[in-house]
């Protein structure tokens, strides 16, 4: 118990003193997860909207498949991306293995189902009655889609939040694709994983606390932004 309390004390000192390694790993992790979330927004919010607004055969099946992939194991995504971007893989020439960009790619794929699925169900939640109301007001298709998107924005925010949370907290893909290279691809989760293996409890607790704080801060910030524009 004393040992734990001592480790906790050291970890707080590491954070408060702005230990360069801790700061570096934290900024890198934020950069990677934010990039992945942003890319996923750009790709999957429009894609989700298309799936929702368009009608085509097999739409229901597609949505079920997307939802079935919500909890795709991160190590599986890691394995697939590894095989894709390894030198001998189909995307080997891009040189993405053991880079941050490679981790971003894996995280985009990892959060794709969650984001797509939540965007679709978010749009479904508002558009059941809204289109009729809007049509009676004389809105065109584009205007209608925009209005529905606006109505659905709280759902979108939770989609973004959940995606960011999944990206920043996963360790399997970051380890396999990034390789946990010090000063280059080490993230909070892979550093914690190495630290625990090395018996460096204080460092691991420090990084764990930071990870937890980031999750809380991002969540609070987005909720605040959400309630202000409402």
């Amino acid at each position: 118990m004393d040992k734990l309390a001592e480790a906790f004390g050291i970890s707080l000192r590491l954070i408060l003193s702005g230990d360069p390694t801790v700061v570096e790993v934290t900024l890198r992790t934020l950069g990677i997860s934010a990039s992945a979330t942003l890319l996923a927004c750009l790709l999957f919010i429009p894609a989700g909207a298309i799936v929702h607004f368009a009608s085509f055969p097999g739409k229901k099946i597609l949505i079920s498949v997307i939802q079935a992939f919500y909890s795709v194991p991160t190590v599986f995504v890691g394995l697939v991306v590894f095989l894709l971007i390894s030198r001998t893989g189909p995307l080997g020439s891009l040189g993405l293995l053991f880079t941050r960009q490679g981790i971003v790619l894996a995280e985009v794929l990892l959060i794709a189902p969650v984001m797509l699925g939540l965007v679709i169900s978010g749009l479904k939640g508002v558009s059941a009655d809204a289109p009729d109301t809007l049509r009676t007001l004389g809105a065109g298709r584009i205007q209608m889609a925009a209005a529905v998107l606006r109505e659905a924005s709280p759902a979108m925010i939770s989609a973004v939040l959940l995606s960011f949370g999944r990206a920043i907290s996963e360790v399997g893909a970051a380890m396999m694709i990034g390789g946990n290279i010090a000063g280059r691809t080490r993230t909070l989760t892979t550093a914690i994983s190495l630290g625990v293996g090395k018996g460096e409890t204080a460092e691991s607790i420090a990084l764990g606390l930071i990870l937890l704080s980031i999750a809380l801060v991002v969540s609070a910030a987005v909720h605040m932004a959400g309630s202000r524009s409402r």
Binding site: V23, E24, V25, L27, R28, L30, G31, I32, A34, S35, T37, L38, C41, R100, S153, P154, M156, I157, V160, G183, V218, A221, V222, A225, G226, S229
Partner: peptide, 21 residues
């Protein structure tokens, strides 16, 4: 607007290079 807030937040961290000017 709510989105923009998040995207701005993300922009602050999107660099990925550790020591950020």
């Amino acid at each position: 607007m709510r989105f923009l807030a998040f995207i701005t937040l993300a922009a602050l961290c999107a660099c990925g290079r550790p020591p950020q000017p």
